[in-house]
Design a protein around this nucleic acid. Sequence first.
DNA 1: ATGAAAGCGCTAACAT
DNA 2: ATGTTAGCGCTTTCAT
Lengths: 382, 382
Amino acid sequence: MLGCCAHYAQGMSPESLSPTGDAASTRAESAAVSRAPHAATLQDVAREAGVSLATASRVLNGSERKVAEAFRERVERVAETLGYTPNMSAQATARGRSPVIALLVADIADPYFGQIAAGVARGADERGLVVTISITERDQERENRILRALRGQRPQGLILAASRADRADEAGVAGTAPAELAAFERFGARVVSFGAAGRAGGDAAPQPERTIVIDNAGGAEELGRRMAALGYRTAVGIGAAEGVRTSDDRLGGFARGFASGGGAVERILRGDFTRESGATLMTAALAEGVEPGTLVFGMSDVVALGAMSAIRAAGRAVGTDIAVCGFDDVSASSDVTPALTTVRVPLNEAGYQAFRAIVDDDWIQDPLPVEVIVRDSTPGIA
Amino acid sequence: MLGCCAHYAQGMSPESLSPTGDAASTRAESAAVSRAPHAATLQDVAREAGVSLATASRVLNGSERKVAEAFRERVERVAETLGYTPNMSAQATARGRSPVIALLVADIADPYFGQIAAGVARGADERGLVVTISITERDQERENRILRALRGQRPQGLILAASRADRADEAGVAGTAPAELAAFERFGARVVSFGAAGRAGGDAAPQPERTIVIDNAGGAEELGRRMAALGYRTAVGIGAAEGVRTSDDRLGGFARGFASGGGAVERILRGDFTRESGATLMTAALAEGVEPGTLVFGMSDVVALGAMSAIRAAGRAVGTDIAVCGFDDVSASSDVTPALTTVRVPLNEAGYQAFRAIVDDDWIQDPLPVEVIVRDSTPGIA
DNA sequence: ATGAAAGCGCTAACAT
DNA sequence: ATGTTAGCGCTTTCAT
């Protein structure tokens, strides 16, 4: 008991540390083999290193406080030997905050969300944060259920990338309950959503969430202008239900730009954000008749891609016969033939921005440059 | 103070619940506005409902034990009112196990991993589990670092979907350290990996991990046979570095099947799993000269897609001039023109299987049917 | 059936 | 600089 103090600061064997050292470590070892599996705990490290819990904690968690070099080394070595890794849950409960960022997407297999997720993950990794991912399947009820459960994670931040119908102006229209989001802010989580710039303020409460705004209207407008300049004069738009912000903004912007160049959007087909929706709507439109030289604007590449396949399936040619353009520039868009004209949105960067919006106190969004990319699906028609 | 007991089982106001009810709730409320934000805790609910912590816990966590109906109702109502959600971290520390499944992928924006992730997420949702996701960027060092950190989550399971070089037979070849994985198993986590069926047993220890095997060799062999039947006689394969199981199996299987039909793989280009790799290698090959009528087999659709774009960029035609086929059937494959011939792998289902492998004690893999899909990128050459 | 109390693994005052 | 000791929010014996 006393003798140990004489040499414990040097390299000594574990059993010299305390009267119970021998017995304890023996028990621990046999436990590891015979009993329920159990990862090394900070207690184990402290005991084995002959220091207090506090010291061990200070050494292993990068706290500001100083610890004598000799102790530090001992603790580090023991931790290494025991393969100690701090238990995040315990740290979270003790600290009162967990290192998680919750990401909510409609469908992680969709390249649009995949890229956003990649950007978020990149940022999280930089800061040693954990990202959890949940799938709404574009189902509002499901989203609400998930949101509820997500609160249990007490995340530092919540990223809403699901293309939910953004809360509409009129009450009653489906949308994520503000109350549910407020619940997150109540314990300090920051909620970041993708989509429309400041929403119409029905609620008196100032909008506490941060929004990653993508210049949907502007990008689409420029696209419309370019298409008109290419010679197109009549277009059909494919969008989601009326009231869905992203869709409305893109459709509206396009119409504006196209009109400014002398074109006209003669009709708008409405469905959702899926490839199937694009294909189905296009097939129906084709059945009703679509003039050669018409331009189809799919509100998202995924939808435009669906429309392209429907056009081909109907025996018509994409480009020369019916032109198609989209929005997002997901990777598949440059693979198709003819390659799809679209508006490039830096999705990965957008995801990274969402991450910043969560961790940076004084955050202001870096503008996300959208850029029209003209490819073969919209050849010029002199 | 006493009167409250007369009607507390009916609808009563919070303040009638305990002597301190009034004061407490007032303090709590003002705290909510003025102090650090704080979500309702089980304590809050118990106090407000006038029951013990234990009872509140029993009511709200679906424990087996019985609680009088009156209490149950009270507790539930109070929890609802307060917007209580159990703190997962605390539950995890108390229970000694956390509800997380850690998913490790090379790149979540890659449709291959995206689909797997979707399958995993689907399963996790069924069981109320949380999926955390980490990106290796196909960097072994990074993967090891992440693995280390992941241990802190004490996940129930770890899914290795990163197309790491599977541990090779010869020591020294890069690969995930078995010791690192063993660390997970030590605290009861199940580790599931994608890839090769039983690996060569260098280690004496029986392989405790579970593996989602995809019939790479078989699918590729069938593809080879079909391509030979279509009339192709010479092919060039594009793969990853030698030693990477998935790549080797596919390349090997293809060569076998192709040969059985009278064809021959005249050379194999090696890079990695990215689209860029496919494009770069193909460009180089094209520069050296590729006969018309040659078939290019990209070990994965992503690689094949890259090759296709290189072929187009070189002014050659995909299909009629140089045929291309791949493996995986990611969604982009049916969008390209000509559509890509490939082997369909039920990736989403594979992800779901990985989830099952983690949660089911007596798990045996359902075979994942791979299926050759011939499309226009490999027209028959009578 | 209910509640008191001892943890879970860790952190963070607060001593010393 | 080190150790002691309350917690963190929840679960789970163990009494009652």
